[in-house]
């Protein structure tokens, strides 16, 4: 899709009839995300336990770290023990692992994917590239700190972190969820304008709606 396709325009139907379309309104929801305040009661604690024990990772690798996620499924590391499963679609997943460096082109896709995930959603950032730029600190095309663009719950340091470090990060995330501290989705909704300003500062051709569902 290119930038021009999103604007209001007139098209001619096969019958020769002229009508106006506005793709941004027709195909996308223009509402901003809303904060869903967690009710602090015993049910929420029970739900938090369920969320922490059933972590569905989105199968989306951005950088070289994606190769470190594959061994987690193998007998040696076997992340399934911790209730971790991989899902192919952002609708069903609730953990997005940013695996390594993010070019601005990928950042655009990551933002779309993150916004399609449903409310309790968590972000784990792998490697020094997502923390301070790492070995790509002087690259013309990669961002240097991820938490300006997405709310990050857990950073896993290393270049690259080994699968053990990834598992340790997941265990850390579990304790965060159980104590109710992993509220990244609500943080994103609250500081939506700040995040959008930062995102638009580095993504030069913003050819999508402000919020993708």
């Amino acid at each position: 899709m290119s930038l021009e396709d999103l604007y209001r325009k007139t098209t001619i139907s096969p019958d020769g009839e002229e009508f106006e379309i506005n793709p941004i309104e027709d195909y996308f929801c223009t509402d901003k995300p809303e904060e869903v305040k967690p009710v602090q009661n015993i049910l929420e604690k029970f739900y938090n336990w369920a969320r922490s024990e059933s972590i569905w990772i989105l199968g989306f690798g951005t950088g070289c770290g994606a190769i470190e996620m594959r061994p987690l499924m193998t007998p040696r590391f076997d992340a399934y023990r911790y209730g971790i499963q991989w899902r192919p679609t952002p609708r069903q997943a609730n953990l997005l692992i940013i695996s390594g460096y993010l070019s601005t082109k990928t950042l655009k896709r990551v933002i779309r994917v993150y916004e399609q995930m449903q409310n309790p959603k968590y972000v784990m950032a792998l490697g020094s590239c997502t923390i301070n730029g790492g070995m790509y600190f002087d690259s013309y095309n990669t961002i240097k700190r991820l938490d300006y663009y997405l709310p990050v719950d857990v950073y896993v340091a290393g270049c690259m972190p080994r699968p053990e470090a990834l598992l340790a990060g997941v265990v850390k995330l579990k304790t965060l969820i159980k104590t109710g501290m992993a509220e990244g989705a609500n943080d994103y909704a609250n500081r939506f304008d700040w995040y959008k300003t930062n995102q638009k500062a580095v993504i030069l051709n913003w050819d999508m709606p402000d919020y993708n569902w």
């Binding site: 869903v36 967690p38 029970f46 739900y47 369920a50 969320r51 024990e53 059933s54 569905w56 609730n94 449903q118 409310n119 309790p120 989705a185």
Partner: peptide, 8 residues
Amino acid sequence: LKSLALRT
């Protein structure tokens, strides 16, 4: 339970 507990 996790699927039921989704907020949106």
